[in-house]
Structure formats: C-alpha cells, structure tokens
C-alpha cells in the first residue's frame, strides 16, 4: 500500500471524509473515489452503480465498490440527481485503480445546492485528515 506522500491527490477536485472526490464542470458534478480509497481496497472487481434519474442526498449511499475480499459503500459527497454513469466500469472496473480521477470516474450529477461543494475538503485539508488518522 502507498504511503501518504505517495498518494496522487490533484488540486482541481474536492474531497470528502469518505474518500470520494467531486469535481465541478459548470452545471454537472463528476464523482469518483480517490487514490487513497482505491489503494486501500486493492484490485477493484466490481462497481455497483445507481441508475440515471436516481436522487440522493449528501452522504447517502449511491452504490458500492468491491475488491476480491472487501466491499465498501459509496457515499454522495454532495446531494443531487444522477445524470450519467460511467458504463465503462461494467466491463473494466480496474479503471478505478488505474485512473481514479480520469477514466475511473463513477457518476455525474446535477447538484441540488452548488454551494455544497464548498463544504468539501481541499487537497491540503484532506491530507491533514489522512495524516491525522494514521
């Protein structure tokens, strides 16, 4: 497993305490799990996704992610309605390992309250949380 200083934590996304990231693209927000989460879980074998049109509040479970011997719930970093899901993950769940912020994204949502995004952590704040939990 990676040391904290080996983690890839880009500046242009925001982080939640549950190790999801969110990135705003105007109207829509894209969501996935971060490098820390994929590294902890190891080889991802399956991602259970919601359906387009499903609505979730902040911190609701929107799916789950599985490695060979572990399963973790996926939590909404912000509330909203699902507008797209990454169907590539059906056949290639390993994208989450290979490119957690790129091809391994999970869902896109229309956010309920765009200011919610501001409540999420910056890279620095998130790093501090990770270091604190060690």
């Amino acid at each position: 497993m990676k040391e904290i200083n080996e983690l890839e934590l880009p500046e242009d996304v925001r982080y939640s305490k549950d190790h999801e990231w969110a990135k705003s693209d105007g109207e829509t927000i894209r969501i996935g799990v971060d490098d820390y989460a994929q590294d902890q879980l190891g080889d991802i074998v399956f991602v259970e996704m919601p359906e387009v049109g499903d609505k979730f509040g902040k911190d609701d479970v929107f799916g789950s992610i599985e490695s060979v011997k572990a399963v973790a719930d996926l939590f909404m970093p912000v509330g909203g309605e699902v507008t797209a899901i990454n169907t590539d993950l059906e056949d290639a769940p390993e994208l989450v390992n290979q490119s957690p912020y790129g091809d391994g994204w999970m869902i896109e949502i229309k956010v309920d309250n765009s200011s919610d995004l501001e409540d999420l952590m910056t890279k620095e704040a998130y790093l501090a949380v990770l270091q604190g939990s060690e």
Partner: peptide, 9 residues
C-alpha cells in the same frame, strides 16, 4: 464473488 457472502458483507 465472495463479497456477496456473510463473512465479508
């Protein structure tokens, strides 16, 4: 597919 099972889930 052991993640369906009781010892994990």
């Amino acid at each position: 597919l052991a993640t369906r099972e009781q010892h994990i889930r």
